[in-house]
Design a protein around this nucleic acid. Sequence first.
DNA 1: CGTTGTGAATCAATTCACAGCG
DNA 2: CGCTGTGAATTGATTCACAACG
Lengths: 269, 269
Amino acid sequence: MAVRRGRRNGARSDDAVDLGASKITADNAPTAEMPAVTDGADPVVRVKSIPEAAVARLAVYLRVLSAMAEQGATTVASEELSAAAGVNSAKLRKDLSYLGSYGTRGVGYEVQVLVGQIERTLGLTRQHKVAVVGIGNLGHALANYGGFPGRGFPVEALFDVDADLIGIPVGGIPVSHLDDIPQVCADRGISIGVIATPPTAAQSVCDRLVSGGVQCILNFAPVVLQVPEHIEVRKVDLAVELQILSFHVARRADENNGAHPVGNGMVVR
Amino acid sequence: MAVRRGRRNGARSDDAVDLGASKITADNAPTAEMPAVTDGADPVVRVKSIPEAAVARLAVYLRVLSAMAEQGATTVASEELSAAAGVNSAKLRKDLSYLGSYGTRGVGYEVQVLVGQIERTLGLTRQHKVAVVGIGNLGHALANYGGFPGRGFPVEALFDVDADLIGIPVGGIPVSHLDDIPQVCADRGISIGVIATPPTAAQSVCDRLVSGGVQCILNFAPVVLQVPEHIEVRKVDLAVELQILSFHVARRADENNGAHPVGNGMVVR
DNA sequence: CGTTGTGAATCAATTCACAGCG
DNA sequence: CGCTGTGAATTGATTCACAACG
């Protein structure tokens, strides 16, 4: 073994994470690992890397906590929060421990404190301007989401190829042409690009977003995008989702059927 | 494609998948732990279970392979296929090995064979009828997907609460009322329910889908659904996706910056 | 008390590295 | 030779279980 350690960083966990979409990474080059400090010693590094899978769950906890706060809850125990978030309490506590130590033994966590810490950790204390590309059905849905989840992710640019759409405002933002992606994204300081185009257009749109300076891409098109190393891509793929469900249906059917050819009442087809 | 049941090598697996969307599990330790057989004595179980993470990737390989087939490719090596799918070749080969041994050493894989095997494994040789609930922007987008990914996932029922929508056909299917979910789903043999409603309606919709006999749910609403154990749920959550991206932006900024901009207490623990 | 926080143990997924074979 | 298939090694995530502590 050569290079050791390496902190979260350029982490190339091929897919890891596990919520919503999948992380996409080049996945090649195993070697170029930077030896970065991790635990201990380094006085400057304080962000103890958080496991990818935990990050996705933090976002879920955050939503649950916000709902609880609205209902007036001021403190919550790991058992309760974990149940509401659909995970077990040990996992929840471990996840929260990555943020630091904000609980009170024998009592639980203060809802507001947790909300604040999760927001800080997820980088929600700054704004991330979003551009949506492809104003079809899905793009419309996204554009109208009206500033996306809460505040923090304002949609500030829309793009399409269709000449009939250019200039028309959707959800308050006029649609620009694909060709203007780099310019407009750069001008408006877009940091997240959402691709909701047909698959054939996706790679080229992606390239333009990158040249416009976006740092992250959320890709709804069923294609594997090729991006430079420093760009973070997540993918939401309906076909893949359905096929995974299909797999489970099939598996279950096989199991039930192990010996019995005759199915149960639910057999479709 | 004719519906065929080859249960030759039926693969099964255990639990949480992890790509694409998230598998939601009760997660309450089902303490009844059975020593899973790995190769063994069990008379019925001889199939190697497929790691959950691999299932999601198989769906991706399938798409890439289909595209290659269309371009006239007849064989493909792991290196090429893996590059196109955005994973490394060792992982690809391992994933494919779960299907059985369909490659030719020194040559590669026959595209058609692989396509067939993946389809069989994912249960794509049967049809899975889909219902979409919530015909807003997103629901519309989904309903118009026109029979979803290829064939295999025909949308056969639509639901909404809005009286103005009831009876109106969207993508060829008339919209029914939420109250009719159980009946209609049962009648039409729906196996997959897609929830595209506002969060407040989601749980109740979910319950009705379950009572209508659907086996799997794809949930776009930002809520953690509670379902009976035998129901498979996957979640696609826009807010979570964006927040994960946000996390990575923040992390990167912190790194480049040695020191964090806004001086909140950085914590360590 | 009751609940957090966390090492240690377990379980799952990924990667390595090479034997086996066409 | 070139490429697959796979055990072994590694890395990562989850769960256990309990000491620490308000």
